[in-house]
């Protein structure tokens, strides 16, 4: 109807260019690279499936993957419980609700770098604030970052602290959609607070829960700056995340082909996990 049939295409053309240059090319190039040995300085050498064979035999990469999953397995439940709990309390028509919400949200907006530098001080074994507090109330010291069993949970706790404010607000939105009549009916039947919570609230905010799970899964897979600053992946590679390992292979040793193979494999894994989670939502809702 308009004279310019081209107009819409002109409008979307920046996207097309960007898509070709920054999505299609990198992905294709990355897939190609996985069949080569290349340190950027010298010529590329075709190496067939060598990078993939190496990947499957690379114990450290599998350890890094397991570490990342371990991180998620602590981070997600912890985040769900804490944020749901605080959201439920905030939802109780209290004064200063807005103020509390704003305070809880503060860590979300602050740069991860600043948060990590700060927590490194809190986690100090001998002079850290947390251990000082534990000693003060008569408990022993915890080897937050130096104990191979504690290091990853410590990073998960920090990540939870940083993100929980966002999820509190998401849950608040979810909680407010639950119809009041449901609660009133339950109260008539004499249900306790917790009964109401488990029987009514939880099932009704299930979509929010799953959304939070997916969000923190995607976020958790890109775990990088926290171990990079705090532990360098140690002790005994217990905080070596998959992305940190890929970064090291690519940008420490310049094993570009191998790092690409790791990247592709890791990306496929993330997509698979997210697709499974999505399927799960569709079934539920």
């Amino acid at each position: 109807m308009r004279k310019g049939k081209l107009t819409p295409y002109l409008l979307v053309s920046p996207y097309i260019v960007h898509f070709l240059v920054f999505v299609v090319f990198p992905v294709a190039f990355s897939i190609l690279l996985t069949f080569f040995k290349w340190d950027i300085i010298s010529e590329m050498k075709f190496s067939g499936f060598a990078n993939y064979r190496r990947l499957f035999a690379d114990r450290l990469f599998w350890k890094a993957l397991v570490n990342t999953l371990y991180f998620l397995s602590i981070h997600i439940p912890l985040e769900l419980v804490v944020s749901l709990f605080l959201a439920e309390i905030l939802n109780q028509k209290l004064k200063f609700q807005g103020l509390f919400r704003a305070l809880f949200f503060l860590p979300v907006i602050v740069s991860g770098v600043a948060v990590t530098i700060l927590w490194q001080q809190l986690y100090g074994y001998n002079a850290g604030l947390l251990n000082k507090f534990l000693m003060y109330i008569g408990l022993g010291k915890v080897g937050w970052l130096i104990d191979t069993k504690m290091a990853m949970p410590s990073i998960a706790i920090m990540a939870t602290w940083k993100n929980v404010g966002l999820y509190i607000i998401l849950f608040l939105v979810g909680l407010q959609t639950v119809p009041k009549q449901y609660y009133e009916a339950a109260e008539l039947e004499g249900a306790s607070h917790w009964q109401k919570f488990f029987k009514i609230t939880l099932p009704l905010i299930n979509p929010t829960i799953i959304m939070v799970v997916i969000l923190s899964t995607i976020g958790g897979f890109s775990l990088f700056i926290e171990p990079y600053i705090m532990t360098g992946g140690g002790p005994l590679n217990s905080t070596l995340s998959a992305l940190l390992y890929i970064y090291k292979q690519g940008f420490f040793y310049y094993h570009m082909g191998y790092a690409s193979a790791l990247g592709i494999f890791f990306a496929l894994l993330i997509m698979a996990v997210v697709i499974i989670q999505r399927k799960y939502i569709e079934k539920r809702t």
Partner: peptide
């Protein structure tokens, strides 16, 4: 020798 990263202090 301590196992903690004292360089962060």
């Amino acid at each position: 020798f301590p196992k903690e990263r004292l360089s962060a202090r």
